[in-house]
Design a protein around this nucleic acid. Structure first.
Lengths: 102, 102
DNA sequence: TAAATAGTCAAGCGACTATTTAACTATTTG
DNA sequence: CAAATAGTTAAATAGTCGCTTGACTATTTA
């Protein structure tokens, strides 16, 4: 989980790189979880488009999907997000934890 | 600076969404600053390709360029980065600072 | 001023992406 | 089982992106 390649991290950022998808993620950051229909409603997009973006976010590991009955619920994977962010945002880590570069 | 649109934030993530560019950024996160030639050397890419990616990173506000004589130096803009990250990474903010959604 | 160093820019290619539409699958309820 | 709700998927279109090549600009040094 903390062993993510640079390609994997780039894929997480790619998942956040589209305004529509970023809106979904920022929406989710304010709620614990939301079902697909509510996300689509609040984001003002079709279910088909949500499903497409949902897959991108899910494949990248940004969100986790959970089926409960007829509905599927979506929540952010904060741990995965932070492990990608920490590489480019050194404030949160200690310099000795860095991988040596030369 | 803290007033960034969702498109602007998405643009920052887009700048981080390519493995080559993310490598440049992660390289810079371990140094205070580097000149173009050294970045290209350490990343193993051509100057032309660096220049292309440098522009993307610079336009998105991820890095700041500074000319000193013949060389140009590159450093991360940590403030801009954190202002994009904080929207999707609520750990660092207090819930009452969030914009109301309904 | 000529040569060397440092970086930019435009064109072109192939690969990928966002969106819509419409048909399809899965789960619950009457 | 039939109908309704919730979500998926494929196809098609239009646009974007990463990389290479080769020519161009800017700054320093001889």
């Amino acid at each position: 989980m903390s062993k993510m390649s640079v390609e994997g991290r780039a894929r997480m950022f790619a998942a956040l790189s589209d305004p529509t998808r970023l809106r979904l993620v920022e929406l989710l950051s304010e709620e614990d979880e939301l079902c697909g229909t509510h996300i689509a409603e609040r984001a003002g997009i079709s279910m088909a488009l949500l499903s497409h973006h949902w897959k991108v976010l899910s494949d990248a590991g940004v969100v986790v999907k959970e089926r409960r009955g007829q509905r599927q619920y979506c929540r952010l994977d904060h741990e995965a997000l932070s492990s990608a962010f920490e590489y480019v945002w050194p404030q949160r880590r200690i310099r000795s934890q860095l991988a040596p570069t030369h």
